[in-house]
């Protein structure tokens, strides 16, 4: 589904990604771990299409088509979704208006009809109950005055509504208490199918107790230095990242 070959990217003349290779297939869950500043969030933003990042080398193929030149909205229309580490507050725009616009613009771009209001309403209700969200939440302004947990739950709610094929969850566990973490993780698991894929970016192993990855990659200084299965995450949790650093230096 997503194939990344030797990807280099910089922001304001600072090279952050220094040759990333990744191959993500439908039905898989990949975890990307690594210490602070290793380039995890940059990788997520580059895949989602944030304009400040410049790709200097390498390529990203999505279903065999290059996406490097596509705008963020065009990538979203192809089914790429990113859950933000720090979701943006937008006072004055309700979640309902936001999600309705997002869904219908995506359908429009795909040459489909707008979603009828009653179907939209039904979908909103379904996803709310799936994520244990009070429906009053829908008439609130986007992330405005939300707690950390509410913001993250809102991200997963949007993911549930948009039904992406590739979801990148950037530090979704940060700022969540254990109950919120369980709800968010169970939402992600319920949305998992054989035809979509998920990339979980996290600093800690904790989230991976609830979202079980097929592959774990360790990102360090802009490169993937080690890959393995879920046992790698457990090892990292025990030994810390210094162990990886030492291994690289040797």
């Amino acid at each position: 589904m997503l194939k990344i070959n030797n990807l280099h990217a910089k922001v304001e003349d600072k090279e952050i990604l220094k040759g990333i290779d990744l191959d993500i297939k439908a039905g898989e869950i990949h975890a990307i771990m690594g210490p602070n500043g290793s380039g995890k969030s940059t990788l997520a933003s580059v895949i989602a299409g944030k304009e400040e990042y410049e790709i200097t080398k390498g390529e990203m193929l999505y279903n065999n088509n290059p996406i490097d030149e596509l705008s963020a909205e065009e990538r979203a229309h192809k089914g790429i979704f990113m859950s933000f580490q720090y979701p943006i507050e937008i006072p004055g725009v309700t979640i309902t208006n936001f999600i309705k616009t997002a869904i219908n613009e995506t359908r429009k771009a795909r040459g489909e009809e707008e979603m009828p209001a009653n179907q939209m309403l039904k979908l909103l209700r379904e996803k709310c109950s799936m994520l244990e969200i009070d429906r009053k939440f829908l008439s609130r302004s986007i992330n405005d005055g939300f707690s950390g947990g509410e913001k993250k739950r809102n991200e997963i709610f949007q993911m549930a509504m948009l039904e992406p094929t590739l979801s990148i969850l950037d530090e979704t566990d940060s700022g969540l208490d254990i109950d919120a973490l369980k709800i968010v993780a169970s939402g992600v698991n319920k949305l998992k199918t054989k035809t979509n894929a998920t990339v979980v970016i996290t600093h800690y192993q904790r989230l991976l107790d609830y979202i079980i990855p097929d592959y774990v990659h360790v990102l360090f200084d802009g490169k993937i230095v080690k890959s393995g299965n879920k046992d790698l995450a457990i090892e990292l949790e025990k030994k810390g990242y210094d162990w990886i650093k030492e291994e690289i230096n040797n």
């Binding site: 963020a72 909205e73 979701p87 936001f98 613009e105 949007q158 948009l162």
Partner: peptide
Amino acid sequence: YLKSRGIP
């Protein structure tokens, strides 16, 4: 943020 949700 809005564009990443498919809004042009």
